[in-house]
């Protein structure tokens, strides 16, 4: 057994050295995992999630890199030589794998520019959903219907990005049609009251309710409401139905499309009894 451990793999490096390095790296990986897990538990409610994830990645890879650099002499590697070799290899690999390098650079710019953060609701090109993770090479999106989508960072960086929660508040709009015979002032008053009663329909910027169009079948009221970005969809869903019910409860109806037809001559129609 001792003889086996003493067998040289290359140069002065023995099997024992290789096993030792593997053990050290395994311990470093486990240690990095334990430390990052504990830091995550300690700071999860004290830091923003994207900042926490970035810090944990730095700590995790920092521990592994320090461990690796510390044991390179055991493998008979000269660090300065390794760096030169690494540099040359980097250039070669860079040319050989342009898309990987492109994704890497895009990832660095994404992390630097921060157009999106983990947890944000975004639309990148034709993919919409929640940002699950931003890695150095790719960005993970969980679509609204729960699908896992991995986007290369180059694509994310060069696509049009819409971040639905980048600003603290956003506006949404309804168009509510009422009959020409209904009192538009009364309808506006009812809608304003409902908006006032909803906690997340913001007081400022002030909501707007006004007659926006005299349509073919209805008087159209525009309803514009600001809500916190994290709540706007809930507010939008809740308020529209409340407006509809409250208007109807007050005798104001949302009409179907209709057209009044005038005949030049009295139409010759015969009334038929329904049997």
């Amino acid at each position: 057994m001792i003889d086996l451990l003493g067998v040289r793999v290359y140069g002065e490096v023995t099997v024992y050295n290789v096993i030792f390095v593997i053990l050290i790296m395994a311990v470093a990986t486990i240690l990095a995992k334990i430390i990052t897990t504990n830091i995550r538990r300690a700071l999860i409610d004290k830091m923003k999630r994207d900042q926490l994830e970035l810090m944990l990645k730095l700590i995790y890879f920092g521990i592994i890199i320090v461990a690796f650099v510390s044991i390179t002499p055991t493998l008979g590697l000269n660090l300065s030589g390794l760096l030169v070799a690494g540099g040359i290899a980097g250039i070669v690999l860079g040319f050989a794998s342009q898309s990987v390098v492109s994704n890497l650079v895009s990832g660095i710019f994404l992390i630097w520019e921060k157009p999106i953060k983990i947890g944000d609701q975004v639309s990148v090109g034709d993919v919409s959903g929640f940002v699950e993770d931003i890695n150095i090479l790719s960005t993970i999106i969980r679509t609204y219907d729960g699908l896992y989508v991995r986007l290369p960072n180059e694509r994310v960086f060069t696509s049009n990005i819409t971040n639905y929660v980048a600003n603290v508040a956003r506006r949404f709009e309804y168009v509510v049609g009422i009959r020409y015979s209904d009192d538009a002032d009364r309808a506006i008053e009812i809608i304003k009251r409902l908006i006032e009663e909803h906690p997340f329909a913001l007081k400022n910027p002030e909501p707007q309710v006004f007659v926006s169009e005299l349509g073919e079948s209805s008087v159209n009221l525009a309803v514009r409401i600001w809500a916190p970005s994290t709540e706007w969809y809930t507010v939008k869903m809740e308020l529209l139905w409340k407006i509809k019910k409250e208007l109807e409860a007050n005798g104001i109806q949302i009409p179907f499309p209709q057209r009044t037809v005038w005949f030049a001559n009295e139409p010759k129609v015969k009334k038929v009894e329904f049997q």
Binding site: N167, F200, L202, W226
Partner: peptide
């Protein structure tokens, strides 16, 4: 009391506040 919220500042970088 029924709660109500508002923005202090502007919608881009303002602050959501209890009003």
């Amino acid at each position: 009391n029924p709660p109500k919220f508002s923005i202090y500042g502007n919608p881009r970088d303002g602050i959501i506040c209890r009003y």
